[in-house]
Nucleic acid binder design. Sequence first.
DNA 1: GCTGGCACTCGCAACGGCAGAGTGCCAACC
DNA 2: GGTTGGCACTCTGCCGTTGCGAGTGCCAGC
Lengths: 340, 340
Amino acid sequence: MAHDERRLEVLRAIVQDYVSTNDPVGSKALAERHDLGVSPATIRNDMAVLEEQGYITQPHTSAGRVPTDKGYRLFVDRLSAVKPLSTAEKRAIERFLDGAVDLHDVLGRTVRLLAQLTRQVAVVQYPTLSRSAVRHLEVVQVASTRLMLVLITDTGRVEQRVVDTPVDVDATAVAELRTLLNSAFGGVKLAEAGDQVPDLLETAPAHLRGLVATVSSTLLEILVEPSEDRLLIGGTANLARGNALDFHGTVRPLLEALEEQVVVLRLMSEVDSGTVLVRIGEENAHEQLTGASLVTVGYGAGDRALGGLGVVGPTRMDYPTNMAAVRAVARYVGHLLAES
Amino acid sequence: MAHDERRLEVLRAIVQDYVSTNDPVGSKALAERHDLGVSPATIRNDMAVLEEQGYITQPHTSAGRVPTDKGYRLFVDRLSAVKPLSTAEKRAIERFLDGAVDLHDVLGRTVRLLAQLTRQVAVVQYPTLSRSAVRHLEVVQVASTRLMLVLITDTGRVEQRVVDTPVDVDATAVAELRTLLNSAFGGVKLAEAGDQVPDLLETAPAHLRGLVATVSSTLLEILVEPSEDRLLIGGTANLARGNALDFHGTVRPLLEALEEQVVVLRLMSEVDSGTVLVRIGEENAHEQLTGASLVTVGYGAGDRALGGLGVVGPTRMDYPTNMAAVRAVARYVGHLLAES
DNA sequence: GCTGGCACTCGCAACGGCAGAGTGCCAACC
DNA sequence: GGTTGGCACTCTGCCGTTGCGAGTGCCAGC
């Protein structure tokens, strides 16, 4: 029906205007700025219906309308086309990320880039260890009874732990242990590596067995209980920009949630590589994030996502642009990491 | 002279009251809350003198007085005793930091601890590479023409770089290279290691010379051009707490300065191990930090500082408490890192 | 089903008056 | 001479009033 068509068109116009002006939008202004082909009075009728259906609301009687979470949801799902990035922006991404020297550098640049591109708070998760594979396990002797285990993953991430041994260890034993560990775990996914530790204990040559036993618990720790995944955050200054009213008057709970990381990490764990996931306001159950929206996507070559990245901002954000930026950046980061 | 004595006492009282109430403090309230033994009228006279000397100022006629940067400086230098921490706080420090598994974990806990203890923004610098020594240099072959150099410092920090070689490298050459590098650089301070690279090129056995030449530029990079020192930041939510008026109405420039890191890193580079350094308002020339004070100290066993840590907050902060907390935390972190 | 008109409702900014806090100055006191 | 109480003055913050403008809902007419 033509009616519903137009009503959705009105909703889209409301979202667009509200996002760009930050003022509740009224029927008259709407008729002026968009040619919907009908008069303000008609728009008022449509708005009354949209309000009844829960897509928009008015802050107080006789103010304009503002989209609700449900309204944004409909907008994101059906009314918006992902806005392609300008070539200038694409080039900015490449220029910004090329020349990074290691993993930390890549991700650090990524978070700054995203924050700058979207003018929101940017969040980048380190490649999840459990989805990575072992590239190399290094054993370094730092004292006669102290070894350091260093895990290097195929995504370039490095984890380390110190182990104390009950007896002195000589250099050849260290070398043998290194060879043993690498032949056992080289190329193995971390998610599966844990199961192989017991096997290793049995198959190890007799003279190494004691050493392997000592090391194994730390080995398990480093392989299957990856230190909780890390998060890089940038662009928090963008929170101090817009009116704080976007977040119930204070950005504090949001900043706290970001610093605790755990909440955001949980949300990140659900990302899929390729499809951009949008969570709007109340949709993310954590009350600290109420009033905020997340736009996230997984990055990583192929189908498996190595980790997630995205932006956090007010529900009143420019979804099409942010979705495009997040997707483009994730794609480029994925390529970068696949190469190294 | 008894006069000057009392005048300083008045200044101290003003600072204390203003810090705790955040209201400009008047002569009457001052006479009530502190027993200075004189009447408000006398205090008014003293305040007039203090104002003329530039230690306090009034936001507008007929408001109370507020300390100036110069007033805080005098307070910090001569009027305050560093407040010892409660045993509960000391225990909190230990409980919080013990059980950290690696360097990143130690510093992450430190920054959270400091933020919680002081209710300010906390800043922790990674151990400066140039002041660390090489514990181990690892060479890992990740492809036939691609090596990864991993530097492990005596402070537990890990840096890595990938090097492409023009020709295939076999495993024995890798092992020889590893031995060569470690005997050349093991235990050497990074600040001095750079100078030894040319020597290495000459003394290397002939069949390794090509490989060493290939690796040497990356080696130089990793040793003497340490990826800019890193900074951990926590407790930014504390900025959203107090009235933003403490920072000219907006915390944005401060957040930006913190994210850029470079400004803060420069200030950090001046820290000394042991003595707490306080920079008040205009004293730190960067305009982004105007209105903010920094309390910093170096950490690290012995006299050489491995890095700096501290807090950033409004000039109107509780200096004695923050100085005590920063010093205590730095001391404990120093011990922790010396052990591992 | 759309449109123009109209009465109505609110929020908001501007204004003026008022109370309170704090000051500077002065004359008196010890 | 330093200290004190008194006093007139100044300025801010708060409150109630008022007027305006934006926006709405409803209704009658096309």
